[in-house]
Design a protein around this nucleic acid. Sequence first.
DNA 1: GTCTATAGAAGGATAGAC
DNA 2: GTCTATCCTTCTATAGAC
Lengths: 202, 202
Amino acid sequence: MVAKDRQTEEIIFEAATEEFIHKGMDGARMQEIADRAGINKALLHYYYRSKEKLFNAVFEKLSGQIFKKFAPVLDDNLSFEEKIRFFYREHLEILRKNPRLPAFILNEMNRNPEWMKKLILKIDIPKVWERLESLHKEDFERYHITRDNFPQLMTSIVALSVFPFAARGIFSTILESMGYDFDDYIEKRKIYAADFVINALR
Amino acid sequence: MVAKDRQTEEIIFEAATEEFIHKGMDGARMQEIADRAGINKALLHYYYRSKEKLFNAVFEKLSGQIFKKFAPVLDDNLSFEEKIRFFYREHLEILRKNPRLPAFILNEMNRNPEWMKKLILKIDIPKVWERLESLHKEDFERYHITRDNFPQLMTSIVALSVFPFAARGIFSTILESMGYDFDDYIEKRKIYAADFVINALR
DNA sequence: GTCTATAGAAGGATAGAC
DNA sequence: GTCTATCCTTCTATAGAC
């Protein structure tokens, strides 16, 4: 029965992920999760004691997913330009496959700021700056990237890939009204955003 | 008593705005709105028949606020560069005064896509493109702005100002861990973002 | 482990007095 | 117009049979 247990737990987890990502913690309903999973409410509580705990499990998994993908940027021995191109290619692709992730994360972080603070502070941000600065000393000098304007640059880079998904409801409507398609737009954006940033820097 | 009525209705509206902007439609509580307004729940229903209607009133007002400010960009006889600088100066200032607005709007649009679609489609987007294209023919040629990459550019411009607020919970934590302040960051961003875009274009 | 049935709490809405 | 009291629905959570 161990195999069965595992399976049910996973089915519940996936159903919960769907529901939470669509409706958020406040809008999600245990009944709906049970329906999606093809079981009944009581079983949800058997595996995860409460809605809160179930939500936490889902959130932990999803938020991990989004941050994990930033790591290669610190390691690979690519030039700074190549890293920017690499970032948009990979990151936009992940988001294309999980288009609701950004809106979900931003939502829930808004709902529970304290809780998120802990998550962010696991990363030693000043260390990240030092590491990048030493890795790309010449590039940073050439592009006038300093400790002071580093946050401006980083938030700009992230904004260009994440925001279209956070505002997908608006943007895809606008794109369609001009006769374009959101997925095409994202595909082209892998190049456009990289060029945009690199041009902006020089 | 007319003056009193008006006053109460406004007090309720403001209390509701606070509550909805913090918790969203799903998370907001009528009791909490009543408490904030210093009245009781029954009175909420007297003025606004339901939570739904009260929310709609608030949302209509707030969403209007955000879109209204895009208008001058079409009219003023500034150069394209000047418009970009103007946009970031004005728009970031509005957002600085209403930092929760972006997250709120994005949230609720995610919750009710249909409803938002109607709002967006009031704007004749292809007309906006035509208008800007004819206003800035030489600039658009010089900067290689075409109908096809126009959405890429526009979404990028908006992303750079709106996203820091949408992700404020994350960004302000990161900034603080480096010893910087969110409001300073926004103040500098009025210039940084404008330079960023203008450099990116040429 | 999984189900049915139901407890128990919360929250939106309304009746009716003043 | 404003309040108190209460209804009614919805939702989370648990008890208990199988």
